[in-house]
Nucleic acid binder design. Structure first.
Lengths: 201, 201
DNA sequence: AATAACATGTAACGCGTTACATGATTAC
DNA sequence: GTAATCATGTAACGCGTTACATGTTATT
């Protein structure tokens, strides 16, 4: 039950209301790690409070309730983080689409890859700017929702996606531009022009 | 409904039974893209057949039914691949854990990162070997379940994960080894020692 | 003869999404 | 005053997991 721990993680950073948490899922987690809507978040906050892992620390206008993590909540979050399961269940439609790319012909594959090249470049620029802005404040991690480490992971993942899509487009050139052309058997066998070379350290 | 299209994608490669498909999810998709169990796969195959997107092409021993994709199925798969949604819903517990890393203190964070460094190195080696073996057969993509492009994406993603984890461990050195030590504000501000430098092309 | 692997199916339960529903406060 | 945003809640439905259930074929 990851939602529970995602909420504990967000509250470990700072107290927040259900509404705040909903926006933080939207903004920071949705794209990379996890997603939840308010219809799931509010009831789960209630259960977390029942279990003593969070508590209401303030009530504001419009019925707003600000929750904070308790010591028991921190302990539970820590326990969960230090005991990962042996296999992770992944559900990532974007990556599924990448895998199924091989069922398309050359022209269709290129139509699928081109937007990825562009979109990943845009996102990368945005994330790099957010990091620079945060670094400039000279207060650690200011503005970066999950700290510098997570931001770096995001940047590197986007760079990888971008680099791969560019490489894949090169390998999938339209007929004529390439020695074998089309999705022929030979064309699938070109050497890796700019693939990473070195192994793990 | 991605399961439908994941099944169509697998069947676009070659005909298979529900049992085969279950194993292919397990082996090839589970770790990176999507997961499904036989209890979900069998009923969905039935629905796909009802909708004319797949058909039974052989019946074998032990009630085995081999399904193949139909032309209508291929058309549906193509349509789906060429019309991605604007936002993707991601559900990736491993990445969620990376994001929540920042809630741990230095010692705990290192305890979390170390196994990642090792495990990603192991997986990378295994995948690289599978690719080399496949390349050596000199038949395109032989043995690579989703083709060379997907395999390359896998390699690059693992390299990225490994590189990031090594980098994160370096930044998170135990007290004493590092100018500021612990999870202090200053320690969070080291420059990026081996981070990738260049932007998108 | 026994065990492992092959092969399929379904029921119950829990998680997640969509849609419905309501009201308060702030900014223009 | 009116629209946008803030703020919470729940019901219905669909997707996904776990567990239950059954039988066949190949291997040793």
């Amino acid at each position: 039950m990851s939602l529970r721990h995602a909420l504990l993680g967000l509250l470990a950073d700072e107290p927040a209301s259900g509404y705040d948490l909903t926006r933080r899922f939207e903004k920071a987690l949705r794209r990379y790690a996890w997603h939840a809507q308010h219809s799931q978040i509010y009831p789960e906050l209630g259960r977390l409070a029942d279990d003593g892992l969070v508590e209401v620390v303030a009530e504001g206008a419009r019925g707003r309730r600000t929750y904070a993590i308790t010591d028991a909540g921190r302990a539970e979050l820590r326990r969960w983080l230090l005991h990962p399961p042996e296999v992770f269940v992944v559900r990532h439609e974007f990556v599924l689409r990448l895998f199924l790319l091989s069922t398309l012909d050359t022209a269709d594959a290129r139509a699928m890859l081109q937007p990825i090249v562009e979109e990943s470049a845009r996102e990368l620029t945005a994330l790099r700017e957010a990091i620079e802005k945060s670094d400039a404040t000279s207060l650690a991690d200011a503005g970066l929702p999950f700290g510098r480490l997570a931001a770096e992971y995001g940047v590197r993942s986007l760079e990888t996606l971008h680099g791969w899509a560019v490489w894949a487009l090169e390998r999938t050139e339209p007929a004529g531009n390439r020695r074998a052309g089309q999705a022929s058997v030979a064309a699938q066998h070109a050497s890796r022009p700019d693939g990473p070379a070195t192994g793990p350290t």
